[in-house]
Design a protein around this nucleic acid. Structure first.
Lengths: 337, 337
DNA sequence: CTGAAAGCGCTAACAG
DNA sequence: CTGTTAGCGCTTTCAG
């Protein structure tokens, strides 16, 4: 592997001239520049990123931290992040926290001591100490999906209230009055926002939300299955169910099937987030989807801004909220009775 | 961030003593060692990995290169790799090649010039030049899934012939005699091995494989859909179909549904690789699954062996072939006629 | 416009 | 057993 010295020797200049010339061609005579670029070409010189990192104190790496790799939109997220990172000459590392705060913290620690340029995280429900820890980080941080109150960093997500409103009002228009909601993990920002969207939409239509119809599915398919079982075996069972995410929708669908209800004839079902290969799932689900690829790009762009910004310049926390997209499936119908 | 100098100053020894002591406690007096570890603790010293990398010429990073992040087992793969890598103090980077040889090469180039410790790759169908390129790499390489003939590197995969034999003989036992096979991308090792397993199993049962029933689905759901349409609209259509992977099985299932055939009543379907949330797909597919997590561990262990081995020691290429697991679903039944 | 020199944080001979 | 020294490859003042 050729070093800057080889280039300097071949172009008969000093190594610092090579460094300067290759960085910003404007500080050298055109002819020396040419000699240098030719020499660099000839020996296939590529600056050693490690040496550059040592000098800069940061590596050209961005860390992505997610709770679970099972998350179905996770592949699209990574693809989007990688694409944008690549354009900025950065590699992307990936870590899984298994939704464990201690692991989340250890992971971020590791990333920071590896001197990554920045971190994109879809965080778990934090404790106050954890928020404080995150606030104290020197490494640029962008939060995606679950916003953390009180944390002054860039955020990218969707309008979760709107997402639930879209689904809930769809069901209301179909004539449903008793609608169940399988909510996400209690306390998580997205879960709370979605619950609020659900309640507000009902209230706005003059329907008092029945709190017993709002159950915690903890963003888990299994828990959602159990909760759906509870909902549907009640005498006053709902005629429709809205799940706060895709995994829970699948769990709910399974429960519906296992109880020999038919969807949408007996029970309507809708959810946030599409499911992969949704086309072979019967019935195709009515959903609102997050524009994951765009969110990934936006998050990465935020991060690159901070990485490329001069240390002097303080960028205020920014926020990018996307509007989800409604996709009509065949899982919603007017109530049967 | 504390440096080795801070520790040295505080422990009143030289920096090299600190370096030696922290690496291998046996070369220093117990009391100096204690002074040093205490000092390191006190200032929360953690060696800068970038500086270590510069010295070593490699970073504590392993690169994972896959064709597509859509691949459903990809999350499990990453989780497994990350777990093992973490135990060896390595971070994992992720890159997608979109099944494009030029991108695959560019990606590997980038990884190598980043001086990653090693690379785990699920490669695309290579040209001879590409094989040569891979052979020439100095960076340790482990291939997973698609073996490349003539490439002398560690390999981890499953017994693909066996996988297809398991499915094919299951269908034969049910009484099927005309079985279609939606094969993977022509030329890819896994695809060829699976085809061979299919043909051999039929032959062994005294059935001459009908080559027109073996179609190229290119490991794509869409292509598989089209090919299934072709197969099922023939007068002499098969009574069962085996898909070479999960995405193609879903494409085939969709085609079966769209043509108003019922599975398994009219057409039986089986495939290699399970599908996520398979439990809500109707009917549940009969499949053989790869032990992805174990494969990931094995591949990472191979890689770490090479990374940790002294440069002098030449490790011969190794191979780890797993046996897939049969999972009975409800998508296979005796032929109707 | 170009070159000499210092140094990022660490490791590894080589001396004492 | 411990300290001195010389870099790893690069960037960046600071002189010339």
């Amino acid at each position: 592997m050729a070093t800057i010295r080889d280039v300097a020797r071949m172009a008969k200049v000093s190594i610092s001239t090579v460094s300067v010339a290759l960085k910003d061609g404007t500080q050298v005579t055109p002819k020396t520049l040419k000699r240098i670029t030719d020499a660099a070409e000839a020996v296939d010189y590529r600056p050693d990123p490690i040496a550059q990192s040592l000098k800069a104190g940061r590596s050209r790496l961005i860390g992505v931290v997610v709770g679970s790799l099972q998350n179905p939109w996770f592949g699209d997220l990574m693809a989007g992040i990688e694409e944008t990172a690549l354009q900025n000459q950065h590699l992307v590392t990936l870590s899984e926290t298994r939704m464990d705060l201690a692991r989340e913290r250890a992971t971020i620690d590791a990333l920071c001591s590896q001197r990554v340029g920045g971190i994109i995280i879809s965080p778990h429900l934090p404790t106050p100490e954890h928020v404080e820890y995150l606030s104290g980080l020197k490494t640029p941080l962008v939060v995606i999906d679950h916003k953390i109150d009180g944390l002054q960093v860039d955020f990218v997500g969707i309008d979760n209230q709107l997402a639930m409103s879209m689904l809930t009002s769809h069901l209301l228009r179909l004539g449903h009055r008793r609608i169940g909601h399988i909510a996400g993990l209690n306390g998580l920002w997205t879960a709370e926002q979605r619950k609020r969207g659900f309640r507000d939409t009902l209230s706005a239509s003059g329907i008092e939300p029945d709190e017993t119809l709002i159950v915690d599915g903890r963003y888990s398919g299994e828990v959602a299955y159990d909760q759906t079982m509870r909902l549907l075996t009640r005498a006053d069972r709902p005629t429709a169910i809205v799940a706060a995410n895709n995994l829970m929708a699948l769990g709910a669908l399974q429960a519906i099937n296992d109880l020999s209800f038919r969807c949408p004839d007996d029970i309507s079902l809708a959810s946030v987030d599409s499911v992969p290969w949704g086309s072979v799932i019967y019935p195709q689900l009515t959903v609102v989807v997050q524009p994951i690829a765009e969110m990934a790009h936006a998050a990465t762009a935020f991060l690159m801004d901070r990485i490329n910004a001069p240390a002097s310049l303080q960028i205020l926390p920014r926020e990018r909220i996307f509007v989800p997209k409604f996709i009509t499936g065949r899982s919603c119908a007017p109530p049967s009775s």
